[in-house]
Each structure stands twice: as structure tokens, then as C-alpha cells.
């Protein structure tokens, strides 16, 4: 208790107050009494990076689709034309195949390897025929 009654009104009595009731202690779900550690910042940063790469590859996919649709159609039947068509189709699929291929082939623990290969894909899979108009 403090000397002034006004001060009493501005402070909690704490455990010395006869009306004080101790509230139950809430245990954490894992039972160790500690709060859960926050997710490391790198994983959310990585997710953002993967999302950004995914977005770039989606844009590339659209670019390749437009590029191969505007490509001149050759005479059907010859092996070169068939291979050309298959090549165009594979080029269209290449951003998606690259994105999922990197995730399949590079283990989750090697995030830097994944980022490097995704960056290589951004460089080599850019739809230049669409950008240059050929």
C-alpha cells in the first residue's frame, strides 16, 4: 500500500491484494513452456523469389505461345516440318518444364542451386522470337 490514496487507485495490488486471484498458466501446445520460434526469414524470402521466377516463366509461356502461333506453317509431311512443329511445341513448354524440372532435380536443401538454375532458365528461355518479332 502506498501513502496516498490516489496512488492506490493507479496501481495493481498484485499478490498482496486479498482479492487477487491467480490466473491459470497457459501451456504451449508442445508442452515445453516456451513460445514457438518464428519461421526463418530466408524461407519466406525464398518463397517470394520462387513466386517471382514462376511469374516470369508464365510470361515466357505466353510469349512463346504468341511466337509459335505467328510462325509460318511449312508444308506438312516432311520430317523437317514435323520436327520443326515438335521443336516449337517443346519451346512453348520449356519454361514450365524448366521450372518444375529445377524443383524436381535440385533437392530442397540446396536453395542456392535452385535459384541459380532458375536464373539460367530466365536467361536462356526468353521468347526472343516474340520480342524481336520473328
Amino acid at each position: 500500500m502506498t501513502a496516498l490514496p490516489d496512488d492506490d487507485a493507479l496501481s495493481w495490488g498484485g499478490s498482496t491484494d486479498p482479492t487477487h486471484v491467480e490466473s491459470p498458466v497457459v501451456e504451449s501446445p508442445d508442452g515445453d513452456g516456451q513460445t514457438n520460434a518464428a519461421e526463418p526469414g530466408t524461407s519466406s524470402g525464398l518463397l517470394v523469389a520462387y513466386g517471382a521466377f514462376g511469374l516470369v516463366f508464365i510470361v515466357y509461356l505466353v510469349g512463346w505461345l504468341i511466337a509459335i502461333q505467328s510462325a509460318p506453317a511449312g508444308l506438312s509431311g516432311s520430317l523437317a516440318v514435323v520436327m520443326d512443329r515438335i521443336g516449337q511445341f517443346l519451346a512453348f513448354l520449356s519454361p514450365a518444364l524448366w521450372f518444375f524440372g529445377v524443383f524436381l532435380l535440385a533437392p530442397e536443401s540446396r536453395a542456392r542451386t535452385r535459384i541459380v538454375w532458375l536464373a539460367v532458365g530466365v536467361v536462356i528461355l526468353a521468347p526472343w522470337p516474340f520480342i524481336l518479332g520473328y
Binding site: 512463346w64 511466337a67 515438335i86 521443336g87 516449337q88 517443346l90 519451346a91 513448354l93 520449356s94 519454361p95 518444364l97 524448366w98 532458365g121 536462356i124 528461355l125 526468353a126 521468347p127 526472343w128 522470337p129 524481336l132 520473328y134
Partner: peptide, 12 residues
């Protein structure tokens, strides 16, 4: 697929 994309790019 990567070769096809890169080849078309170099051609253009």
C-alpha cells in the same frame, strides 16, 4: 525443350 527454345532464339 531448352534446346528448342534456345535454337529458335538464335535463329531469330
Amino acid at each position: 525443350a531448352a534446346l528448342s527454345a534456345a535454337s529458335l532464339t538464335l535463329e531469330s
